[in-house]
Computed example of a mutant assay.
Amino acid sequence: MTAAARGGARRIWVTRALPGAEATAARLIAMGLEPLVDPLLAVRDLSPPVDLTDVAVLAFTSVNGVAAFARLHGDRDRPVFAVGDRTARAALEAGFVDVVSADGDVQALAALIVSQAARLDGAVLHPCALEPAGDLISPLVAGGLSARRLAVYETLDRDPSPSTLAGLDGLEAVLLHSPRAARVLSGWLERLPAPGLRALCLSSAVARPLGTLVQAGRLGCVTSAPHPSETALLDLLTP
Score class of each variant (00 low, 15 high):
94 A>M: 05
163 S>K: 11
28 L>V: 05
178 S>E: 04
184 V>P: 05
50 V>D: 01
154 E>Q: 15
21 A>G: 06
30 A>W: 03
54 D>K: 03
129 A>T: 11
8 G>S: 14
215 Q>R: 13
13 W>L: 02
19 P>Y: 10
58 L>I: 02
123 A>L: 11
137 I>K: 12
120 L>I: 09
53 T>H: 12
109 L>Y: 00
202 L>V: 07
175 L>N: 02
120 L>D: 10
138 S>P: 12
52 L>Q: 04
75 D>A: 13
132 P>Q: 13
226 P>G: 14
98 D>H: 10
22 E>T: 07
198 R>V: 01
166 A>T: 01
86 R>H: 10
5 A>E: 15
200 L>Q: 03
216 A>I: 03
165 L>R: 00
21 A>Y: 00
29 I>W: 02
171 L>K: 00
4 A>C: 06
181 A>W: 02
34 E>R: 12
76 R>C: 03
159 D>K: 04
65 G>W: 13
228 P>C: 09
204 S>K: 10
178 S>Y: 03
208 R>S: 15
235 D>M: 00
234 L>E: 07
142 A>L: 11
190 E>H: 08
31 M>D: 11
9 A>P: 15
51 D>L: 01
137 I>T: 06
44 R>I: 05
216 A>R: 14
157 D>V: 04
83 V>F: 15
122 G>W: 11
51 D>M: 00
155 T>L: 05
28 L>N: 02
140 L>D: 08
60 F>A: 09
38 D>Q: 04
32 G>I: 03
144 G>H: 10
172 E>I: 01
145 L>H: 10
12 I>C: 04
229 S>L: 11
101 S>C: 08
55 V>A: 07
24 T>Y: 10
18 L>A: 14
48 P>K: 00
82 A>D: 13
104 G>S: 08
201 C>K: 08
39 P>E: 07
106 V>P: 00
78 R>P: 11
192 L>C: 06
130 L>W: 10
123 A>R: 11
90 A>M: 04
176 L>D: 05
56 A>P: 01
52 L>S: 02
189 L>S: 06
148 R>V: 03
18 L>D: 13
65 G>Q: 09
47 S>Y: 12
40 L>S: 00
219 L>F: 02
71 R>D: 08
139 P>R: 09
127 P>L: 06
127 P>G: 03
159 D>F: 05
60 F>Q: 02
196 G>W: 06
214 V>T: 11
217 G>H: 14
76 R>Y: 09
186 S>L: 12
142 A>V: 08
43 V>S: 05
109 L>C: 02
150 L>D: 10
68 A>N: 12
9 A>E: 15
53 T>V: 07
130 L>E: 15
124 V>A: 02
204 S>I: 15
8 G>Y: 07
154 E>V: 10
23 A>C: 07
32 G>Y: 13
20 G>A: 12
215 Q>V: 09
143 G>Q: 07
214 V>P: 08
108 A>G: 14
70 A>Y: 05
152 V>R: 14
129 A>D: 14
190 E>F: 01
26 A>W: 08
141 V>M: 13
82 A>K: 02
191 R>W: 01
167 G>H: 05
2 T>G: 03
148 R>Q: 15
1 M>W: 03
68 A>R: 04
190 E>A: 13
